[in-house]
């Protein structure tokens, strides 16, 4: 019964969202692309003009660039590994009958609601501090030398903090998926003599596959942009040891005032994110057809 009238009305209702998002996507991105081919340093207003691919070469030949790409990869993959394996394990555990399940669930998902600066500062000062942190207390209790986490293992320390923040997300989604597994199937498998390991490989994992894909892809989108956790803990250091691509662009832009260079980095970040986005869109899009 879709008349011409209702169609027009529907278009009008959608117009504000569509137009806003269109402007939001096109204008800044076009500006970034434009700046990336310009000589533009906020400290040197005289040197303005077309730069060709200079900014890209500058970014590309900077040793910090490859290190930051590498750090980004290690950070994303490290956090994904911890959260997905941890999420499956904790999800399986919470799926068992127990006393106080609701409360345990609340305890487990809580870190997700902690804002990144709080999470990072609490871990930095109260847990991982080489003098007063809880880890140092534990080390001394066992007669060991406390570890100076952010000086010795800066990237690993950040991975731990970010993984702590995202573990609840993975757990919650995988638990939701586990709970939708048909219990009759589980019983049938048990009756047929499948042990826990076989049930896990042949029944649970195939059921979880799609949820794991969703967790991996969505987390990757957010993990590519980890920023506040680095800012308040290591500030990217020592050297560039914990600088990811997002942090390097921030450094170039707002600390180095190099608009052109930072924009070239921004375009590179867009390309990286697009590769991930391509796969995410396909996974989510398939779901829409159901």
């Amino acid at each position: 019964m879709a008349t011409q009238n209702t169609k027009t009305l529907a278009r009008l209702m959608m117009a504000p969202s569509v137009l806003l998002l269109l402007v939001w996507m096109v204008v800044p991105l076009a500006m970034t692309l434009w700046f990336s081919f310009q000589n533009y340093n906020l400290l040197d207003p005289s040197n303005v003009g077309f730069a060709g691919t200079f900014n890209y070469e500058f970014f590309y030949t900077d040793p910090a660039f490859f290190q930051s790409i590498w750090n980004t990869l290690v950070l994303v993959l490290g956090v994904l590994f911890i959260t997905v394996t941890g999420g499956i394990a904790i999800g399986l555990l919470l799926d068992q009958p127990m006393f106080g399940q609701g409360i345990v669930r609340i305890l487990v998902i809580s870190p997700f609601f902690v804002m990144p600066p709080v999470a990072a500062l609490v871990w930095k000062n109260m847990i991982m501090h080489p003098g007063y942190g809880v880890f140092a207390d534990i080390a001394r209790f066992f007669g060991l030398q406390p570890i100076d986490w952010f000086a010795q293992y800066p990237l690993f320390s950040i991975i731990i903090i970010v993984a702590w923040q995202w573990l609840p997300f993975a757990t919650l989604i995988l638990l939701t998926a586990l709970q939708s597994l048909d219990s009759e199937q589980k019983e049938a498998a048990e009756m047929d003599g499948a042990n826990f390991f076989n049930r896990f490989i042949y029944l649970v994992m195939p059921h979880l596959a799609r949820s794991i894909t969703v967790v991996v892809l969505i987390q990757t989108i957010f993990l590519l942009g980890v920023y506040a956790e680095i800012l308040v803990t290591t500030n990217g250091g020592p050297g560039y040891a914990s600088t990811n691509i997002a942090f390097l662009i921030y450094r170039t832009a707002l600390l180095g005032y190099d608009v052109g260079g930072a924009s070239a980095g921004g375009i590179i970040a867009v390309i990286l994110a697009n590769i991930v986005a391509f796969f995410l869109m396909r996974a989510v899009g398939k779901n829409l057809d159901r």
């Binding site: 996507m25 991105l29 970034t32 989108i221 942009g225 662009i249 921004g266 989510v284």
Partner: peptide
């Protein structure tokens, strides 16, 4: 799907133009 894709643009990529 297109709306969703706008969410995937990394924030740092548009930091400079937005800031300016």
């Amino acid at each position: 799907m297109w709306m969703l894709s706008t969410k995937m643009m990394p924030a740092v990529a548009v930091l400079v133009p937005i800031y300016l």
